[in-house]
Design a protein around this nucleic acid. Structure first.
Lengths: 202, 202
DNA sequence: AACCATATCGAACGCTCGCTCGGTAGCTGT
DNA sequence: ACAGCTACCGAGCGAGCGTTCGATATGGTT
């Protein structure tokens, strides 16, 4: 990945674009192949010339999404030069930028995992786990060196990731804030979670 | 609501219980009435004796969920005695307890809103908005009195709520931590978000 | 000109969907 | 004894589902 902060708008062929649109609106099971065909400006057999099954469309979409996120995340981490706090902040920034710029892709990525058939789900889950580990590793390092004070770092890391993952549920392209502004704020939220000690247990 | 921290396990009739189970596993559109009937130990017409349509089952489930959460939240707020920081902490505690103890209900509440028909969605959305306002009001008060330092309190409040809403996506009944432990940690995460200033803008 | 791969379509197959019809079995009240 | 009600079911309706068949049009290669 050359520049993990840079997002163009080209990415999906017309069929996948139509499928993604339909999945976002009604969910995988609610979307019909006829609806996807209509959105793509094709007949139903026209769709099947490009993808073998509806399941294949979902799988391809999720694969592209995770591959894009993962390669951007690795690039973001590399920019930190080994500083775990900086790496953590860059990873959160990257995660939020992705969830804003690739809103639909990210939304399906978190909401339609359960619609994948078993073997397909296993593959995508592995990619998600790799993404989570990328962040866990930096949090662990920052905690070990005493620069994060969170009492439950793993729980805190999960809270941060889920907070970012939820961005597509409210962010729209016409939102008053830019993705970059949202990302900057979320980096501070994440650092707040990691730095706050709170009251001692009762 | 007598005690907003207290959760029994009775709440749904057999049909709704079966429908909830099916919705959680495959989503509203993926769940079939035949499947719901099988889970409930009834025939298909047996289901329709209790609910007019599949949509009615979803609506009833979401209605019960939001009503339960809202009345607990109001009780939690009342316990604060007018202190906005304390009210905020209690509301977060309440939100997390609900999302752990009523995991399935809460999960459907956040994932199947789009499956509601227009008029039904409007009603549930109003309840959700009321819930969000409950928290926003305390955050605003705490910011006005200078006890929260977050630069973007509305964004911070939304981040906190979505972080709590995401709990059902990873919490299971057999989780190593109790709902009460998770809630206590999340209260600290939320306070961390509200208290952390971060670096000045570049 | 003949050939082949690619991209597309109208029509339809077999199946499952949400839902309904017309009934029955078992209570309760009179 | 019997009417009326609630709770349920076997069978099946029409519609829509994912998918496929056999065909056509197009454009490049020989």
């Amino acid at each position: 990945m050359n520049n993990w902060r840079l997002y163009g708008d080209i990415e999906l062929d017309p069929v996948l674009r139509a499928a993604l649109e339909a999945f976002v609106e009604t969910g995988y099971h609610g979307a019909t192949v006829r609806d996807i065909a209509r959105r793509a400006g094709l007949s139903v057999p026209g769709i099947y010339h490009h993808y073998a099954t509806k399941q294949d469309m979902l799988l391809t979409i999720l694969d592209l999404a995770m591959e894009d996120l993962l390669s951007r995340s690795r690039a973001a981490k590399d920019e930190a030069g080994g500083d775990p706090v900086r790496a953590f902040a860059l990873l959160v920034e990257c995660l939020v930028l992705f969830h804003c710029h690739r809103r639909d892709l990210a939304f399906i990525g978190s909401s339609e995992m359960r619609s994948l058939e078993h073997a397909n789900r296993a593959r995508i889950t592995a990619l998600r786990t790799a993404q989570q580990r990328l962040i866990d590793a930096e949090v662990d390092a920052a905690v070990r060196s005493g620069r994060f004070r969170a009492a439950y770092p793993r729980d805190a890391a999960r809270a941060v990731v889920t907070m970012c993952t939820a961005v597509p549920s409210w962010y729209r392209a016409d939102h008053e804030s830019t993705p970059e502004q949202v990302a900057a704020r979320y980096v501070n939220f994440a650092l707040g979670i990691m730095h706050y000690e709170g009251a001692p247990p009762a």
